[in-house]
Design a protein around this nucleic acid. Sequence first.
DNA 1: ACATAATACGAACGGTCGTATTATTATTGG
DNA 2: CCAATAATAATACGACCGTTCGTATTATGT
Lengths: 214, 214
Amino acid sequence: MTAPEAIKSKGEITRAIILQAALQQASVSGFESLTIGTLAEQTGLSKSGLFAHFGSKEDLQLAALDESVARFNRLAFIPALSAPRGLPRMRALIENWLTWTEKAELATCPLMAASAEFDRRDGAVRDAVERHLRRLNIECMKMIDMAKQTGDFAEDIDTEQFAFELFGIVASCNQARNLFRDKLATQRAQIAFERLVASACNPQKAAKIKTQKV
Amino acid sequence: MTAPEAIKSKGEITRAIILQAALQQASVSGFESLTIGTLAEQTGLSKSGLFAHFGSKEDLQLAALDESVARFNRLAFIPALSAPRGLPRMRALIENWLTWTEKAELATCPLMAASAEFDRRDGAVRDAVERHLRRLNIECMKMIDMAKQTGDFAEDIDTEQFAFELFGIVASCNQARNLFRDKLATQRAQIAFERLVASACNPQKAAKIKTQKV
DNA sequence: ACATAATACGAACGGTCGTATTATTATTGG
DNA sequence: CCAATAATAATACGACCGTTCGTATTATGT
């Protein structure tokens, strides 16, 4: 049992280099666009040399997906946990979520992109994407429940509904940023988040909104 | 100048059959997954026979995109215009937007899927996707402004912000439906929309929310 | 320093990709 | 009904796909 930060072997280093290139490529053109040849060219490896690090293209895609999850956790999720429980932590998460791709030098969040890319397909990659995003969804709901416990949110708000709208804000932010090249995208997402919070934080106000006819 | 509903030539009929198959395929696996060979097999044509209908694969993608826009307009947008101006028309649009893919027998809205698929790339397809969705965004904003004129919405709400959040609701609905297979997705989207409307329809309440610190 | 395992390479495979050219068959207007 | 034209097919091409295999090279542990 070696420590997680153990010295990397040559193979592990190469693998990391490959995954770095794969992640960058996938964040631009999608995971399905990953090709052994292009990736080999970019990393200076031979096709077969690169291929040997993964048993198949699907394994490469899965590895790239796992790597992007690891980076999201390291750059966005875990740092948010150091904020106080409740609303501050939620705010930190959404803030980090909207900005971590920049720090990671990626074109967009590979997870959300992979969601749209694979959501209507079958296979191992789709399953992995669903698993990862479902987990993130659950973590968000935990934070929402915590915010109820701390008194930041009203007890009677719909946790799943809140998470649904949260994911929508992130999705729209990505669309505004990438498709519309809107420089105000992040700001709009923050405003949307605060509006969402506002409708949940004040019990009286929240009750009014919740009980109106649909 | 023939009428738009003129009798179709054999070629036009075949082309329509091809586009139908292309649209279905694209709504499942994305526009980039469209291949001449697979499409030829599905339609019973030869590769070269099918190819002759489009000068290139890119033209095929663009034609499929245009076709999906035409269907969206026919099944979702135009019908919404028969609802009274203002909030009712907006409600009709979002309702149709969330359900038209079912009527069209597609796996998801090809436009929103194409947005996520091409938003970080370059090329004619990306440009077309941006053009189409920007137009839809503008049409949404027109409806929002109309709702201000009819008095349904407060005059001082941020039209672009409202449209931003509207697109987020649709995106989250698609994710919930397709990735999470959430049967309540449409319902959640409707609730989110009504919550969004609620924060814009009552002047006093809207003012409160808008002026809070961010 | 040496044995051994890890790592990378080059070449080749069968397939499929998009596309061009050339020929054949259907459709259609006069 | 026939000529003109549109529509489809047949065939082939080079490029790239993921993958396999045998071999060379390079680290690594002792």
